[in-house]
């Protein structure tokens, strides 16, 4: 959990990481960058899902007491399944639309991770791995396009 380098004395836990962090703050640590992307991506997703859940219970107080509502919720029914649905729902302050937005952020995190790896390998001028990562990213994009076309 070491964010921006702070001048304050560090906790004993973080002391071990000091050696690595202290090497050169301007030099990018690939592992740290990827780890941060994953952490912030996951945190953003969880924040949206939690917010959406709270809004849902606020708008449907019967969810706290009624057991009939559950039957409706777990059997087949239409769910938002296009980006337009999600945006429209969020604008109407529908809790489930926020939850869905959080889930979409979660799904996007691995793809962003591959894109970040590509940038890192390019900066390191590691041409072999730039090629490998670019191919993986291309196949991921292709699978999204094929999925959308289905």
């Amino acid at each position: 959990m070491s964010e921006a380098p702070t001048p304050e004395p560090r906790s004993p836990e973080a002391a071990a990481a000091v050696v690595q962090d202290g090497e050169d703050a301007s030099l990018l640590h690939p592992e740290q960058l990827i780890s941060d992307l994953l952490r912030y991506g996951v945190a953003a997703s969880l924040a949206l899902v939690t917010l959406g859940t709270v809004v849902t219970f606020f708008r449907h107080p019967d969810y706290l007491v009624s057991s009939e509502a559950l039957l409706r919720l777990t059997s087949p029914h239409p769910v938002p399944h296009t980006l337009g649905d999600v945006v429209a729902g969020a604008l109407a302050a529908r809790g489930q639309a926020f939850v869905m937005a959080g889930l979409l952020v979660m799904m996007a995190v691995p793809v962003m991770r591959v894109a970040l790896s590509l940038l890192i390998f390019r900066q390191q001028k590691d041409r072999l791995y730039v090629g490998i990562t670019a191919t993986v990213l291309a196949m991921l994009v292709l699978s999204f396009l094929l999925g959308a076309a289905h």
Binding site: L46, V49, L73, T74, H81, V99, L103, L104, G147, A148
Partner: peptide, 28 residues
Amino acid sequence: IGVTAAASAGVYFARGNIDPFIAGPVCV
């Protein structure tokens, strides 16, 4: 596994398989 799953997650979303009411608590 995240990258492998992300490759097919788009299809599941488009098919309407991802229900926020169920997938939300699972995600958290």
